[in-house]
Amino acid sequence: MRAIQFTAHGPIENLHEADVPMPEITPTQCLLKVKAVSLNGFDPMVMRGIPGLRTPLPMIPGADISAEIVELGAAVDGGRFALHQRVGVEPSNDQGMMGETLRGGLCEFIAVEANQLVPVPDAVDDLAAACLPTAYATAHRMLFTRGRIESGEKVLILGASGGVGTCCIQLAKMAGCKVIAVTSSADKGEKLRAIGADHVIDTSTTHYVDYVVETFGKPRTRGVSGGVDVCVNYSGGTHWAESFKTVRRGGRILTCGATGGYDPKTDIRYIWSFEHTIIGSNGWEREDHVRMLELIATGRLEPVIDRVIPMNGIRQAMHDLQDRRIIGKVVLEVG
């Protein structure tokens, strides 16, 4: 069968199409015919090699999958799953994460444990289903389970044009929040405004801290405090410490990653003097995946898809993802 894989860490050009053996299923697995796969920000990072992460080679990338069941293992509950049923996949289990330490979905067929399958409603097409769960379910858990955002709150979202960011915009707006999106160009900004951002900060012309202070007031330790209620910062890096300057006294800083660097300089004075609460959110739970499917099926949310391309177009897509030329998700059709 056809697959996209890399046999050594390094540049994106190491990705190539290969003919690999068909997977054989165990009694507890289902064989899936893959329909579509979306990319995530960690895919180029895995290509380069992540310190401390042992990626077995050759590796097939792709964690977010929509597929059809074409074979059931002997022990799979036929009352829950059936041939030709459309499913999504929970990409992580006790052994690791697909596309990082377990073979991913950029191949024609894949064997997956039945307990990792999530039924896809008829109202959700294959492309939308492939956008879940890594970015969208992660955003859902970070905002609601961990961050507990509430209607009327001001939510600042850094790196708002990526998969997590575009979902955060839609979910925060759905919750009745005032959404402030930070991005790197006017073109991206217009698209973020179209999906619900109330304010857009283009960092090519405006510093986001200055904008927040001028628009919502300066955060203060005494008296009336300006600033935002919640700052979503999964960039880390140089934006970590400076983002504290945007958050009101008693406000929250939410993080689910560190795309700009995991060991940034910080300023503890802001944490104690402004009584900030820093909340980490690690991925998602199955119920977040299911909830996102429900929101899409009922028309309350639509995944932001930058482009849909064939599987063999992955090199350019990975370059664009790495260089931040993507708004939302890139979906690769398999077959």
Rank of each mutant, 00 (worst) to 15 (best):
206 T>I: 09
217 G>Q: 11
255 T>N: 12
231 C>T: 05
206 T>E: 15
328 G>P: 00
199 H>Y: 14
24 E>I: 15
40 N>F: 02
28 T>N: 14
121 P>Y: 01
177 C>W: 09
266 T>D: 11
154 K>W: 00
284 W>F: 15
231 C>W: 02
134 T>E: 02
269 R>F: 10
203 T>V: 13
16 H>Y: 09
68 E>R: 07
296 I>F: 06
42 F>P: 12
115 N>H: 09
146 R>G: 04
129 A>C: 07
329 K>C: 03
151 S>Y: 03
10 G>H: 12
295 L>A: 05
55 T>A: 09
304 V>Q: 05
225 S>M: 00
241 A>S: 12
225 S>F: 00
29 Q>A: 11
8 A>T: 06
5 Q>P: 00
252 R>A: 05
286 R>K: 12
212 V>R: 11
164 V>T: 12
255 T>L: 09
93 N>M: 04
243 S>I: 13
214 E>K: 15
190 E>N: 10
138 T>W: 03
135 A>W: 02
89 V>R: 03
286 R>M: 11
109 F>C: 13
331 V>M: 01
314 I>R: 02
85 Q>G: 11
37 V>Y: 03
248 R>V: 13
293 L>Q: 06
44 P>I: 12
155 V>Y: 02
213 V>I: 15
231 C>I: 03
259 T>I: 15
304 V>F: 05
42 F>Y: 08
171 L>C: 03
180 I>T: 12
222 R>V: 10
196 G>L: 06
279 I>H: 12
288 D>Y: 04
326 I>G: 01
257 G>P: 11
3 A>V: 00
188 K>F: 05
62 G>E: 08
327 I>C: 01
247 V>K: 11
283 G>K: 12
6 F>S: 01
280 G>I: 11
160 A>M: 04
55 T>W: 13
53 L>T: 14
95 Q>K: 08
95 Q>W: 04
31 L>I: 08
301 L>E: 03
256 C>A: 14
27 P>A: 14
224 V>Y: 01
175 A>D: 06
294 E>G: 06
169 I>N: 08
72 L>G: 07
212 V>P: 14
239 H>I: 00
